[in-house]
Design a protein around this nucleic acid. Structure first.
Lengths: 169, 169
DNA sequence: GTCTATAGATCGATAGAC
DNA sequence: GTCTATCGATCTATAGAC
């Protein structure tokens, strides 16, 4: 019988969503407690370092996911055009067409940038290296636009423009 | 003799910088008090609505600045290519080559988006209308990248790429 | 107008029973 | 492991003296 009660790793996707929705400062422990269904005692049992350790764990998992699903395929594919096409699909799904914020990008804008500087820098540096500054920036800007205009199509249009631009090269 | 003590409007640039640096949630009244040199009593005298009214006043001033210096010139110039070149210079200066965050964009990413939705949407809608989704998104993404990589050149490079792209049309 | 003092709520974090 | 109770700090906002 699998346990219903979460293990530490089960909490990470929930934590990630809370941080994305409310930012690091806005993600209070009571919000986190409600979202995970765990009391503060349990949270501190899993994350003795408190909120900062939670955010670091979340960043690690995000980093792992992008390394596996985005960065490595881009770097190692023998057919770059296929890898790039797959990346656009992955990214579109991951960010829910721009309705879901990029936590790493949001941390870069806030005053939490210094606290998580190393992780943030490494994530973006590897993405840019594997692809192109222009495209990574374009994706981040498209998220801002889609959220600001409250229109996911702004995200999809941007991705499609970049797909076409890259195909023509 | 001009007064040294600030009028309400004199506080706005200071408030703007505090919000940019710490975000809406992170900009506590004690930080604001320290930055402006005004006690809480004075702050509430100028902004009876508290922090929310301060942020709205700041957004209004930002909106006015962009309307005057960016949106209107783009819309009304008889020489679009000159207006666009001037816009890139304005934007590069305003955002300190990506070291200074776009408050409106940052609000769009956070959970404060709903609170200021109308102002945020209007700002970006007018910018996109006067220019191009692609370029506005590119600028926002370039700020994220420059901050994440801690490298203002990432911002300048992006702007230069867009300058060239637009010239070729 | 500006200040200090403080209310009342909520913050992150800890202690200890079970 | 999970919970409740609680700590001290900090938050936004208000009250009232000057």
């Amino acid at each position: 019988m699998p346990r219903i009660v979460a293990e530490r790793s089960d909490t990470l996707p929930v934590l990630a969503e809370v941080f994305r929705e409310h930012g690091y400062e806005g993600a209070s422990l009571s919000l986190i407690s409600k979202a995970t269904g765990l009391g503060k005692g349990s949270l501190y049992h899993f994350f003795p370092g408190g909120k900062e350790e939670m955010a670091e764990a979340v960043l690690s998992e995000i980093d792992l996911w992008f390394e596996d699903h985005v960065f490595a395929p881009l770097r190692e594919s023998s057919r770059p055009e296929n890898a790039i096409a797959a990346m656009f699909d992955s990214v579109d799904g991951y960010f829910h067409s721009g309705q879901r914020v990029c936590l790493v990008g949001a941390l870069a804008l806030g005053d939490t940038r210094d606290r998580f500087a190393r992780a943030v820098k490494s994530y973006f540096a590897r993405w840019v290296d594997a692809l192109a500054e222009e495209v990574v920036g374009g994706i981040q800007g498209a998220i801002v636009l889609a959220r600001a205009l409250d229109d996911p199509r702004a995200f999809s249009r941007t991705l499609n423009r970049m797909r076409l631009t890259l195909e023509k090269r």
